[in-house]
Write a protein that binds this DNA or RNA. Sequence first.
DNA 1: GCGACAG
DNA 2: ATCTTGTCGC
Length: 265
Amino acid sequence: MEIESSPSTSSSALYSSDQYHVPHKWLEVQDSLKKKLVTEDDYTWKLGETGEGCGVELLKYIGGVDISFSKDDPSVACGTLVVLDFKTLDVVYEDSSIVTIDVPYVPGFLGFREAPIFLKLLEKMQNGSHPFYPQLLMIDGNGILHPRGFGSACHLGVLANLPTIGIGKNLHHVDGLTNSKVRELFEADENYNIDFIYLIGDSGNTLGAALHSSKGSFKPIFVSIGHRVSLASAVEVVRRTCNYRVPEPIRQADIRSREYLRKHH
DNA sequence: GCGACAG
DNA sequence: ATCTTGTCGC
């Protein structure tokens, strides 16, 4: 007869520390959603730039999402969805919502905590048949650059059935990838004036790319595919939305969510 | 054995 | 994520 395991003994030994507890079914749900993941370009529009205006549908509305948390009450947060014009990078839509979050942050399960909030914002827009509903979404968090290949960008992409790109501002150490390894790769290629390197794990899989996205930034951002987009397209889109280190859709969502929270709380 | 740990 | 001052540069 099995003895009931103690609460500190999580079903997945992601980390040797018992600092985090993985709620029941999260691994199963993640695995189930992962089966619906599409890792290639799956959309009808083009990125434009060359020979546009020939009747082809172009990428115009690109979304960004982020969440800011209250310093006083960690359960109070503000989720924000912005939509930018891909060409001009002007914000053409913004919606923010103050919410209370009871779902804990567990490394490797960020989607469970944040995706529901973004889904609500997207549904609100979709239900109103808003003309600026995003064709593609950028998420503050990783895509397949993740311990089980299913980060929050994949999570939201599958649930929203939208092409998504994951943006990490810090490296999630996965498959043998480390910051020093990334530094080495950049230094090895620096002679060729290359501003990005592919993140290839010990498994041999390409999990994403590290990109020096703006001129004055030595610290890279970490791009990985979420859903229905190829890595090449993802990097291209990210490149073209970076006025600063952080791509504009995410940067605007970040700024505006923090501002909204400050005003309404 | 210790410690790592997207947001 | 959030806690935080000054400081360097355009």
